[in-house]
């Protein structure tokens, strides 16, 4: 009757109390209901997450012109073609440029705002927090469409810039090959800044008020306090927030597809748009080729995640030692 409760403790303890190690089979029989509870997750997760993870690798070795047909095995041909495909590398580098500009901008700007909004003296804190959070809840694809209008050469952004003298003649930054990727970055930061702001505010709440008071008594100015007291305490959060935002920067299909569609002339095509276009928009779908691109994309994401996980371990070790 109480065996299930007891089993919550360490297995070894439970085993000794039962007067001997229970066999795996009897454990499985007794825990049948646990597996029943897990069934929906195991089935769903197996089919919709684990299977896609593995199947992509298989698909990447196929010549596969559509879901209705069976693919033929072609070995590493897809990868060979990808390596020689300028459009793939264009998309690859666009994704990297996006990441390199957008993530520091989003993380840094959000930190500055969080520091301001965390100060006791700042008025209307709740109001500003809500305001900056508003775009976070909106639909990325719709934000993209709306910004095509806002950024139109005769739209408000262009008019305001001309009126203030920052540009000479009306311009559409989303439709210019030199600026389209950066227009996407700007809109992305606008849309997602609020959530990073909330992360930072949550991080700042973990710093006790006593620390701030101690710094004041020591006569530290605002900058000195930030540099020598707040910042070292924030380093572990910096790593995790950067990781979350980096992964987010790899999921920008909705915004970029609707804002620029990857254009003009592929200037803002990120990897996801490349995959989507190759798999679903070509007259003859190239599912194997797109899968090969997806696999390389997955490896890239994983490399960034691992690098940052290592960074996190390093940061933890450092603060632990200090």
């Amino acid at each position: 009757m109480t065996t299930t409760i007891r089993r919550r403790e360490r297995p070894s303890v439970a085993a000794s109390r039962d007067g001997g190690r229970r066999g795996l089979l009897s454990r499985l029989r007794q825990d049948w209901w646990i597996y029943l509870f897990l069934l929906p997750t195991v089935l769903g997760y197996g089919a919709y997450t684990v299977y896609p993870l593995l199947a992509s690798w298989w698909f990447a070795f196929l010549d596969w012109p559509g879901f209705a047909t069976a693919g033929t095995f072609v070995g590493v041909e897809n990868f060979e073609r990808l390596i020689g495909d300028d459009l793939f590398w264009n998309a690859f580098w666009n994704s990297i440029v996006f990441l390199v500009f957008a993530v520091p901008l989003r993380v840094g700007l959000a930190l500055v705002l969080a520091l301001v909004l965390n100060r006791k003296k700042t008025p209307f804190k709740g109001f500003f927090r809500t305001l900056f959070f508003l775009p976070v809840v909106t639909t990325g694809a719709i934000v993209g469409v709306v910004f095509t209008l806002l950024l139109d050469a005769s739209g408000p952004v262009s008019l305001a810039l001309v009126w203030s003298g920052l540009i000479d003649s009306p311009a559409n930054f989303a439709a210019n090959a030199g600026t389209s990727l950066y227009a996407g970055i700007a809109v992305w930061v606008w849309k997602w800044l609020g959530i990073t702001l909330i992360y930072w505010l949550a991080a700042l709440q973990t710093i006790p008020q006593v620390v701030h008071e101690a710094a004041m008594i020591d006569g530290a100015g605002a900058w000195a306090e930030f540099r020598h007291v707040t910042m070292p305490l924030l380093v572990p959060f910096l790593v995790i927030i950067t990781l979350i935002d980096t992964v987010a920067a790899f999921n920008v299909f909705d915004l970029m597809q609707t804002l620029t569609g990857g254009g003009p002339s592929f200037s803002s095509e990120v990897i996801e748009i490349f995959i989507f276009r190759t798999a679903f928009q070509a007259t003859v779908p190239q599912l194997g080729y797109a899968s090969a691109a997806a696999v390389l994309f997955g490896l890239l994401t994983m490399a960034f995640a691992i690098a940052q996980a290592l960074g996190m371990r390093w940061a933890r070790g450092r603060t632990g030692a200090a």
């Binding site: 919709y48 997450t49 299977y51 896609p52 993870l53 199947a55 992509s56 698909f59 992964v247 790899f250 999921n251 299909f253 990897i271 996801e272 995959i275 989507f276 798999a279 599912l287 797109a290 899968s291 997806a294 696999v295 994309f297 997955g298 994401t301």
Partner: peptide, 8 residues
């Protein structure tokens, strides 16, 4: 990333 899993 969702771009990875969409085809399977």
């Amino acid at each position: 990333p969702e771009g990875y899993t969409i085809i399977p």
